[in-house]
Amino acid sequence: MASGLDDHRKGAVVSDMVSDAARPPVAEIERSRILARFAVFDFCFRNLTRAAAIAVLVILGGVILSLVYGSLPAIRAYGFGFLTSQAWNPVTDNFGAAAPVYGTVMTSAIAMLVAVPVGIGIAIFLTELCPYPLRRPIGAAIELLAGIPSIIYGIWGLFVLAPFLQQHVEPILIAACGDIPVLSTLFAGPPYGIGVLTAGSILAIMVLPFIASISRDVFETVPPMLKEAAFGIGCTTWEVMRNVVIPHTRVGVLGGVMLGLGRALGETMAVTFVIGNAHKIAGSLLAPGTTISATIANEFTEAVGDLYTSALIELGLILFLITFIVLACARFMLMRVERRSGG
């Protein structure tokens, strides 16, 4: 289209030159000046927008470079041992990422364990079961859950969810799992209220709307013909979902789940409130722990000494790389779905 437009404009200028022999030269100069101004403005605007597009890439590059630059001292001091060390001692300048990385992975795993089935359940409800007039309001309400700022989840988790889990859920878990081999270590007491399980629960509520709304969107890309054919041979709603819709949209649903996972891994404030900020890997999910983001949020402004700051920035770098990979996979999968449905 660009070249077509340019040709058109050139053509106009050429024809002007031919016919303008008869016209007064003043008008011709005026006209060509306006056209030149158009051309200059067009050139500027075009390059301005392109510069802005490139700026998006520069931001990403800047994030990565600044994190690498900031973590250089820590990388030099600890090397790869940083990833496996459980130490976290600001006094002796001895730092390791194992505890925060473990906490990040554990809380996200709990969140996905709850949010994936529930999110897909909501998506099935919204596409198949919900009465038509209610679809839009219920869908919007679920998405509102995604709009609540994470600090609100934090304060709510600290004052409402944590005491509730401590008094009503965790004692039951401890009692019920006391004799079962693996579970008894996972749910070993005492019930603190704040800890890995509470953080995972909050994260589950937070990523639920992402998984639900993306799953709903990809379920809606299934051609009605496929579903009608399945209903036509006598399938029940559940059989249609399980054997037709979900296999057809597998990649897209997985993309939505990965997107939710990316959110859960990087979530900061809600987790900071309820995780307890203890730099150790505890076998029990009820014990306090820490995550990468919570460690940074809690300690960064108080970090004295270059190595301390640098270790925290390296944690940020690790977090960014993990989420980058997860989100890139998510986008790649969702792009495949879009391409297929968009034709």
Binding site: V56, G262, R263, G266, T268, A297, T323, F324, L327
Partner: peptide, 9 residues
């Protein structure tokens, strides 16, 4: 990707 990148980073 930036859209859902961790804001703390």
């Amino acid at each position: 990707i930036l859209l859902s990148a961790p804001s703390i980073v």
